[in-house]
Amino acid sequence: MNFLIKKWYPSTTNLPFILRMVMIILGLIISFNTKADPNSTVPMIKLSPKQCIALHQGKKCYVDIELQWRTPDKGDYCLFSSQQRSPLTCWQQDDKGEFKKEIVANQNVIFILRAHDSNKPIATVELEMAWVYKKNSRSRSSWRIF
């Protein structure tokens, strides 16, 4: 006696051919868009990690950051942060660079890449402060009457 056992499970092999082709093309488009393009005409700045997590809101947060940047043209560039007026570091006749530092902050920090002779930002990225416990706002001078 023969048994026909049909087992169903979700698989892309069950999808029609055209739908599979559309998925492949979409995948390729997405992968091309996310892959770093060394010949890109857009300045790029990348920060890792993007978040610093403290235990309590308002407390100092410590994080070792790694920042990478790239521009279409070689030039003199400086990296600034919202924590200080002077540049964190500068590069001469480069179109890419890397910067590592331990950041200590209790509010978001913005990193700005500028051309050496200009105030105009070329690219910016933000380090976000996060915390587990929100600050308790009880401590204020106030009476309560229900």
């Binding site: 308002g58 407390k59 209790n106 416990y133 600050k135 009880r138």
Partner: peptide
Amino acid sequence: TDDNGSDSNSNAV
């Protein structure tokens, strides 16, 4: 968790 310690330089405070 009842920590309310403040940092006078902090905008968050």
